[in-house]
Nucleic acid binder design. Structure first.
Length: 469
RNA sequence: GGCCCGUUCGUCUAUCGGUUAGGACACCAGGUUUUCAACCUGGGAAGAGGGGUUCGACUCCCCUACGGGCUGCCA
């Protein structure tokens, strides 16, 4: 264990697709843990599978991390680029006698497994005949390097989340560390890289819990310190099944396109499988301060979009205007929606105060801010059009002259509108509906006063005259 | 098949042997209201099942059921 050294964590995705939301949470946990302790958060791209790894996928992953605001220290490490070092370690294991050359072919192994299965064997651990072979009998043929794993006893994995987990060594085979083509396997590469990168805490999905036992054997074989393990449960879909495409958004990028704020995403994801008492709504700074391994739960969590939206709404409402504007523009670009014009940008920033508390996502915020972003003539949607009946239009007509001379403050506008309503024997609500329709072309908008203040007197009067006809 | 992990309201979770099992989201009913959002009040809602251990188990142990993971010259 190396618990007292400065913390170094890492996120190690394989670039075979987009950044999965579960991967995003794993990255978040590593980031929080390191950042909260003044440690380092490293990124390593596990691209040793040349068939499936693509540069596009790598870029998609980096993009997802950037959007989530998870910054890593130094440059992302390419695992593939380190293959010579992996091979070097494999040969060192050979020299130490903790690994051996295995000349069994893939066909022989497949045949062994088929036979074992046919006999209904309880397990099919392949025992290489070369483990104890005399080197003099080695053929002049390609060979894989297998680790000489202990055959008896057990391997104890001390996990910060799962507790002490024991594995019978008879369940673990002599895994291959270097393939016959000289390339390293994942089991070797992770260990070598984590060791060389000085990783002290391995926080990853619990699908790797079993792997930890075998990886420990490599650490032992090389005499290296074993990191603190923390295997976190996977995220499931709303139905409790493993999260897959049919659940909708599985990629981090999908959430950006749907307009969720990154701060809300971090908050929600942090709360999924981790808790700090009853705290639900918090900033990333607080999360860094609070995040700890014992707070991580042991059972898989389901995605709950309603709660995600709720948390996101709170973050939008609490957001600082300039930052929100920035993020909204990034959202527009990501969602391939038209960018804001300079005028729209200005209007939106003035409207933010009255729309940010009423939206859970950016598209919703934009819809609420429609009155500020649109321009004459205002097209009323179906519901709004109904509010503009002849009677209402007549009332609007009597309103405009009164607005010409009003000082443009809520204090002054409020009595005027109330007077008009009373004069026509209607409640304020009956007046607000056509006003909303005339000003925004919508039936759900911010307060009519706020809209008037944001777009100003001239625009207000022009829109009312348009609607009054 | 074998090995490993998990199981508290619908969902996320608190509880680390003694609580009327708490909070949040969602839901329902009221309230406020200028629509939406927000907000306020109230409500229903949980320890998978069975054995132990203990004065006392959600909490510790065992079994079963269910869910998940691993079992590759993939990562």
């Amino acid at each position: 264990m190396c618990a007292d050294k400065p913390v170094v964590t890492r996120f190690a995705p394989s670039p075979t697709g987009y950044l999965h939301i579960g991967g995003g949470r794993t990255a978040l946990f590593n980031w929080l843990y390191a950042r909260g302790r003044g440690g380092k958060f490293l990124l390593r791209i596990e691209d040793t599978d040349r068939e499936r790894s693509t540069p596009e996928a790598t870029e998609a992953i980096l993009q997802g991390l950037r959007w989530l605001g998870l910054d890593w220290d130094g440059d992302a490490v390419s695992q593939f680029a380190r293959k010579d070092r992996h091979a070097e370690v494999a040969h060192e294991m050979l020299a130490r006698g903790t690994a051996y050359k295995c000349f069994s072919t893939a066909e022989e192994i497949a045949a062994f497994r088929a036979e074992a299965e046919a006999k209904g064997a309880s397990y099919a651990v392949f025992l290489s005949p070369w483990r104890d072979a005399d080197p003099a009998t080695h053929p002049d043929a390609p060979y894989a390097i297998r680790m000489r794993a202990p055959r008896t006893g057990e391997t104890l994995v001390e996990d910060a989340v799962q507790g002490s987990v024991r594995f019978g060594n008879d369940q673990l085979d002599d895994m291959i560390v270097l393939r016959s083509d000289g390339t390293p396997t994942y089991m070797l590469a992770v260990v070598v890289d984590d060791h060389d990168m000085g990783v002290t805490h391995v926080i990853r999905g619990d699908d790797h819990l079993n792997n930890a036992a075998r990886q420990q054997m490599v650490y032992d074989a090389m005499g290296w310190d074993i990191p603190v393990w923390a295997h976190i449960p996977l995220i499931h879909g709303p139905d409790g099944k493993k999260l897959s495409k049919r659940h909708g958004a599985t990629a981090v990028g999908d959430y950006q396109v749907q307009g969720y704020p990154a701060a809300g995403m971090r908050n929600y994801l942090a709360r999924l499988g981790w808790s700090h008492g009853d705290d639900e709504f918090f900033t990333s700074a607080q999360a860094m301060e609070w995040f700890d391994l014992p707070g991580i739960g042991r059972s898989p969590a389901r995605l709950d979009f309603k709660k995600l939206e709720n948390i996101c709404g709170l973050h939008i409402a609490a957001g600082e205007d300039a930052a929100l504007l920035h993020e909204i523009e990034a959202y527009l670009a990501a969602a391939a929606r038209p960018a804001l014009t300079a005028a729209q940008r200005d209007l939106l920033s003035r409207a933010l105060y009255c729309v940010k508390e009423r939206a859970k996502t950016f598209p919703e915020l934009l819809e609420k801010a429609h009155f500020a972003l649109t321009s004459r003539p205002i097209l009323a949607d179906e519901a709004a059009a109904k509010a503009l009946d002849p009677v209402s239009r007549g009332i609007l007509k009597t309103l405009t002259p009164r607005l010409q001379s009003a000082s443009w403050t809520k204090e002054d506008l409020e009595p005027i509108l109330n007077e008009i309503a009373t004069a026509h024997g209607i409640g304020f609500g009956k007046l607000a509906a056509p006003l909303r329709a005339a000003l925004a072309g919508r039936s759900a908008t911010p307060s009519v006063f706020d809209m008037m203040l944001v777009i100003g007197r001239d625009e207000t009067i022009a829109r009312l005259e348009d609607a009054a006809g």
